[in-house]
């Protein structure tokens, strides 16, 4: 072996070990997903066979059942509710939050730090603590079982977190970039849109993903203030198991629909998380 090839083989061994470790982690986290999808595709007899069968003939029966159950309503309705509520509340939270965060980062005033902390502190209490007052409020204004109720609630829950995270991103933008645009003839609002927002895109993406995941998965409040018209997928899922006992195949089929959209959303956005993280043009 030449002296040159030795470090190369060491290098490769290390890379192989790292790859192996990564595979184990990925396999571990994907295993529940695998079980979910295969269970949904199995016939009932296969689901409960022991020892578990690794090979089986797939059937779409569970999906068909799932679509037609729960008061004859199509699962697509709930899916639509979830998508609408998640999209609207995420857009609102990130839109309003970025403006508030920019203001907090760029226009310090007496007590602005206290205000920022106060905003974050709205997340300190567990949501269950104010579910009863929220329910009463929504009932008195007639918002029970409406999309708007959930959109408002999720927006307010996510807003504090969005503001807190984006404030840090905005503060990290070198102020000269914005001053240069001001001198070049842009107003403050245009500077925000044309310079600041593009520069914090990784932050926007990160907060959008986390806001969307929260809104998509939230169950507690949705279960209390929606019944039919505005019920979301998690609500549907719970009703499903209660009314039927547990029909594992159908349960997993609906679970698949609950997981898929948010996975696709995250999958497409995650590369933006990494891209543009370097502010290379400023020393």
């Amino acid at each position: 072996m030449t002296s040159d090839s030795k470090p190369i083989s060491q290098f490769n061994l290390r890379a192989a070990l790292a790859l192996g470790a990564a595979c184990v982690v990925v396999g571990f986290s994907l295993f529940p997903l695998y079980i979910m999808i295969t269970t949904a595709l199995k016939a009932e007899s296969d689901i409960f066979s022991w020892p578990p069968t690794w090979t089986f003939s797939p059937t779409l029966q569970a999906f068909k059942n799932a679509f037609l159950l729960f008061g004859g309503q199509n699962v697509l309705v709930f899916l639509f509710n979830s998508v609408l509520i998640t999209a609207a509340s995420t857009a609102l939270a990130v839109g309003l939050g970025s403006m508030a965060a920019y203001a907090l980062a760029r226009f310090p005033f007496r007590g602005s730090k206290h205000l920022a902390f106060f905003i974050l502190s709205t997340r300190f209490a567990p949501p269950v603590a104010f579910i009863v007052p929220i329910y009463l409020m929504f009932r008195s204004v007639g918002l029970i079982d409406t999309h708007l109720a959930l959109i408002l609630f999720y927006t307010s829950m996510n807003l504090s977190f969005v503001i807190w995270v984006l404030r840090g991103f905005f503060a990290d933008i070198p102020i000269e970039l914005e001053e240069a645009a001001l001198v070049d003839g842009y107003t403050r609002w245009q500077v925000f849109l044309r310079v600041a927002l593009p520069l914090v895109r990784p932050g926007l993406v990160a907060t959008a993903i986390l806001s969307a995941v929260f809104a998509w998965n939230e169950f507690l409040l949705a279960n209390i203030i929606t019944q039919r018209d505005a019920a979301t997928i998690p609500v549907y899922l719970s009703g499903f198991s209660a009314s039927m006992g547990i029909a594992w195949g159908e349960y997993m089929a609906v679970g698949f629909f609950a997981v898929a959209p948010i996975m696709i959303f995250t999958f497409f956005l995650q590369r933006h998380l990494v891209r543009g993280l370097t502010f290379g043009a400023v020393r």
């Binding site: 070198p174 000269e176 970039l177 001053e179 240069a180 001001l182 001198v183 070049d184 003839g185 842009y186 107003t187 310079v195 593009p198 520069l199 543009g276 370097t278 502010f279 290379g280 043009a281 400023v282 020393r283």
Partner: peptide, 20 residues
């Protein structure tokens, strides 16, 4: 007058180029 209407050009110490 706000900076945008003063019609001056300015070059900054750290260049302040828009990275995007």
């Amino acid at each position: 007058l706000p900076p945008s209407t003063r019609n001056v050009g300015m070059a900054f110490q750290n260049y302040a180029l828009y990275p995007m």
